[in-house]
Design a protein around this nucleic acid. Structure first.
Lengths: 334, 334
DNA sequence: CTGTTAGCGCATTCAT
DNA sequence: ATGAATGCGCTAACAG
């Protein structure tokens, strides 16, 4: 690989001048600029980004940590982040945290040691305190799906409570009086918020919350199936189910089907997240839209703005969920 | 951030010795090693990977290029690659090629300029010639879903022809005599191979291929729907459909349903790839399993072996598809 | 086993 | 507007 040295030699200018046209900064006379560019072309010169980083103390790469690299939900986010950052010439390094505190921390260490200029994190297991000290450290962070008072401008979140509130209200308005809830892992803040929204909707509708109509899962399909089984076993009848996410709703549907029940005739179901395959289900799953793609994009923009000094970026921090009505819900004849 | 220099000073040893314990290479006396490690701990020392890369001419990062970062299929692959490489302390930089020649090339340039030690590519649009010269260049590449004679040891592929052969045979053995085919974009080698497998199965079963029972799509859902529409419009009756991938099968199913037809009673359908949500469909989609996760893992291992000198890795290059029978197919009463 | 000496390729003061 | 000099933090011979 040709170096800046060879370019400067071929162009008959100094090393510094080549560096200048490279960063097209300062004032370089059009003539010398042309000479240099010709030399670069002739040598097929590509700047060594590692050396650039060492010298400038900037890696031009941002680390992204998600719970899972596969899965329908985060892929969307990764995609929009990469898209936005790549357009700005920044590199993206991904890592998975697997919703485990130690792994999340290890991944963060991993990314930080990679001299990332910033980190975009979608984490659950790690504590607010940890994030707080991290935010006060040398490498700026942005948070998706979580709020940290220290960095309000770089937190991007959805009103989870409002989402399940809407979902629950929709069911109630369709005549459902007995509505069960399949909760996410309640140690996660978003799962708690979603559960609160469900309870609030019930209360506002004059319905009382029945502990027997609650099951807690871990956001995964299997736990949804199991949750539905325990709900059914409890023996308390219900005609509607709100699930804290789509995956668990799918598990619930499996269980329901195996018992010969029909959706939505025997049970109306609403999920949460609007992952893309909910459309493919039969019947299509009603759900609450979670604009994870634009949230990822916004997080990317916030680092473009705060870390790379880019200006004029349109950025929003708070997002509203929106109910997506599909065939998995039906009116309940009282 | 503390540097190696401060560590050496605090530990009372030379800079080189610190470097040695860092790379735990060579022979360092346990005593000095302990001193150095204590100093590192005390200073909270983290090696600067950028500087390491510059000095060693090795970035410890490998670039991965996939058609899409979202989507069910590639997420699995990204996940297993990251998993394998991360365990070896290597970083992964992802980029998306969007099945477009210019974008694929741009992404490759992008990754290469990032001083990746190796590239793992899942590309379609780029020509064999291009890949050939790339393979002869300075940065080693591994290929998934494609074969390049220059680097047989770093190509990982599935016998696509065999996959659709099996799918088609399965339908024929269930009594279907009129089987339609929803092809992928035939400029892609895998789409061609799958189509060939279909034709071979037909021929071996003594059935003739009918051009009116063929539609070509682009692997996306919408094109499957449209393909099915044109197939239906053609007016030639058929009782079975083999789709070149699952997404298009889903589109086809939508179209079929809108016309009031029932699966599998009126039409048996088999997809290809076994993306995870095929299980969630109703009826669950029969398909051909594509072990993209282990293929990704193998590609990662090949670079671990060839680029980083790791030994004793179990690596396989060729993979066999396997039919996954589910509810979307039924016997055809002759 | 440990220390010395050079760079890796580039950005960035300072001069001019 | 351009050039010379210095160092980013570390690895890698080469000595000793």
């Amino acid at each position: 690989m040709a170096t800046i040295y060879e370019v400067s030699e071929l162009a008959g200018v100094s090393l510094a001048t080549v560096s200048r046209v490279l960063n097209n900064s300062d004032k370089v006379s059009p003539a010398t600029r042309a000479k240099v560019e010709a030399a670069m072309r002739e040598l097929g010169y590509r700047p060594n980004t590692i050396a650039q980083s060492l010298a400038s103390n900037r890696s031009n790469s941002v680390g992204v940590l998600v719970p899972e690299l596969d899965g329908a939900f985060f892929g969307i986010m990764l995609s929009s982040i990469e898209d936005e950052l790549r357009a700005a010439g920044k590199h993206v390094i991904f890592s998975a945290g697997h919703s485990d505190e130690e792994k999340e921390k290890a991944s963060i260490e991993f990314l930080a040691s990679r001299q990332c200029d910033a980190l975009i994190l979608h984490v659950f297991a790690v504590s607010d305190e940890y994030l707080g000290t991290l935010a006060n450290g040398p490498v700026p962070i942005a948070l998706i799906g979580r709020n940290l008072p220290e960095i309000p401008g770089r937190c991007f979140s959805l009103d989870n409570e409002e989402g399940s509130y809407q979902a629950t209200r929709a069911l109630v308005e369709l005549g459902h009086r007995k509505v069960a809830y399949l909760a996410g892992p309640l140690w996660k803040s978003d799962a708690r918020a979603r559960f609160v929204g469900f309870q609030r909707a019930l209360a506002e509708s004059g319905l009382s919350f029945d502990q027997a109509l609650l099951a807690e899962g871990n956001y995964q399909e299997a736990s949804g199936k199991q949750g539905m089984r325990s709900l059914l076993r409890a023996g308390k009848p219900f005609t509607g189910l709100v699930s804290a996410n789509d995956e668990m709703a799918i598990g619930a549907i499996e269980e329901v089907r195996e018992r010969g029940m029909v959706i939505p005739d025997d049970l109306s179901i609403i999920g949460f997240d609007n992952v893309f395959f909910t459309r493919f289900m039969n019947p299509a799953l009603s759900t609450v839209n979670y604009p994870i793609d634009v949230m990822g994009r916004m997080a990317a923009r916030s680092v473009l703005r705060d870390v790379y000094g880019q200006e004029g970026l349109e950025i929003r921090n708070r997002f509203e969920p929106a109910l997506v009505r599909r065939a998995s819900v039906a009116r309940h004849a009282q």
